[in-house]
Computed example of a mutant assay.
Amino acid sequence: MHYWPSTRWSFSSRRKNDESWIELPLPFALIGAHDRCQVHVEYKRLPAVVYFAVVCGSRVEVWPLCGIAFPIWGRIKSDTQLLVGKHRLSLMSDADPNWTSPTVAAERTAEETEAIGHHSTDAAPADAALVMDWGTGEQTRRLSRQVTILGEGHPSSMRMHGLGLRVCELGIVCVGKRVWAVQLNPDSLPDGDPMVRELVPGGESIWIGNVHLWANQIGSRAERRFGEPPSDATVAVETPAAVNTNSQGVKRPIVMVDQPHRRPISSITRSTPQSNDTDRVASEFTDRLLQKNEKRANRQNLIKWGVTGGLLLAAISVAGYVLIQGVLPIFKAIYSE
């Protein structure tokens, strides 16, 4: 598996006025108190994972994964500070004008180095879809952003209720038509299991909770979940004897709920109009906020370049005036004699 296109990036923690930058080994990072977090923060009241950070090309994005004070989401710059516990974290790619060489270089295995490949600042916009099946037929959802958080509820940006998922289950990274899934709950994976998988069109699914996921095209079903479901969730088992039939006559397993919580399949996927409206409003609000932040960043860049251009023109004008009014008369006086 190869990761998505990305540049070098690093992070800095300013809890004790330490300005050192530490290079991150992979193009994604979980930030929190869990031992498998790429940015490990020591704080006793901190959740296991607080933020999901990604670098796509030269673009750095962060997404909160729990209720946290002063959350930040979407694209960030090097001067953006994430308040995590008592730490102030900053993230920066090597395409940032303020980039400085990391004090601590990243340590990668041979497999990780091969998976990252050559660094690239170009990452195509999202142009793919998630194909989902939880026993009642296939459903497709377009991926409109390069980074999407999939889970049960807020703060996930794509929500699926009643399917045995955690609040934030997967981080979906989409570059062009390629899709990757990052497990956001490292405690659900056995030690040594990779935290990221690529969804190959027509290949094996990713099985989380009671739902199978593919990218763009349905394929075979995974026999093992990508992360164990939470202990308080009603999870499902798939049995070869329990199948339904789609319009093409292909037999597919359906979701069967374990005893003693047996209930109809429809109750697993049922959601009220109020919850659907709430999710729709939340998604629209997130999209509008991201667009607003993008416009604000573009406006700030235009102002910065405008001021820089104005100062440059002023400096050229002053230099020209001094040259014409001060230096040229001296040369004329010298050579006229």
Rank of each mutant, 00 (worst) to 15 (best):
K86T: 11
G135K: 10
S78T: 09
D94N: 15
Y43E: 15
G164W: 06
G209W: 10
H154F: 10
R145I: 00
L163R: 12
G320L: 12
W73Y: 15
N276T: 12
L323A: 12
G85M: 08
H161E: 13
D133G: 07
R263E: 13
I149M: 02
V307E: 09
R145K: 13
F52C: 15
Q291T: 10
V173Y: 01
Q325G: 09
L82R: 01
H87C: 11
G67Q: 14
A48I: 02
E23W: 11
W134H: 14
R75G: 04
D187V: 09
R262L: 10
G306L: 06
I316P: 00
D133E: 09
V235I: 12
L213Q: 02
S13W: 00
Q81D: 04
L289C: 10
N17R: 13
Q217W: 02
V131E: 03
M160I: 15
G67D: 12
G176M: 01
D133S: 11
V237N: 05
E112W: 07
V50H: 00
L143N: 05
H119C: 06
E138I: 03
S12N: 13
G176R: 03
K44I: 13
V318H: 07
G74K: 02
N293R: 14
V147G: 03
R45G: 05
Q291H: 11
S266P: 00
G67L: 06
G67I: 08
V200D: 06
T100C: 10
L170Y: 03
Y43N: 13
E107P: 00
D277V: 09
G227M: 05
E42K: 12
R252I: 08
G209F: 10
K16I: 06
W207P: 00
E42H: 10
R221W: 05
L91P: 01
A233E: 15
S20L: 07
R15N: 11
A126L: 08
M158G: 01
V62G: 08
A233M: 12
R299V: 04
S90C: 13
Y51D: 05
A129F: 11
I303H: 09
S266K: 13
Y3Q: 03
L82F: 04
V147M: 04
R262S: 11
E169W: 02
E223P: 00
I22Y: 14
G85H: 02
I265M: 09
A69Q: 13
R178K: 12
V50R: 03
T7K: 07
P229R: 04
Q248K: 14
Y51I: 07
V60Q: 00
V200P: 05
I268E: 12
Y335A: 01
S12D: 01
R159I: 11
L302W: 12
R263M: 15
H2T: 14
G326Y: 07
G32H: 06
H40V: 02
F11K: 07
G310N: 03
P190E: 14
A181C: 11
V39K: 08
Y43K: 09
R8S: 10
F226R: 00
A319G: 07
W180N: 01
L289V: 12
E19R: 13
E61A: 11
S6Y: 05
A241E: 11
V182G: 01
V55C: 15
W214Y: 02
R75C: 14
H118V: 10
P47L: 08
I265A: 15
P71Q: 02
A222R: 01
A242P: 01
I72Y: 05
R166Q: 10
S156P: 01
N216I: 02
S275I: 09
L313Y: 06
A29G: 07
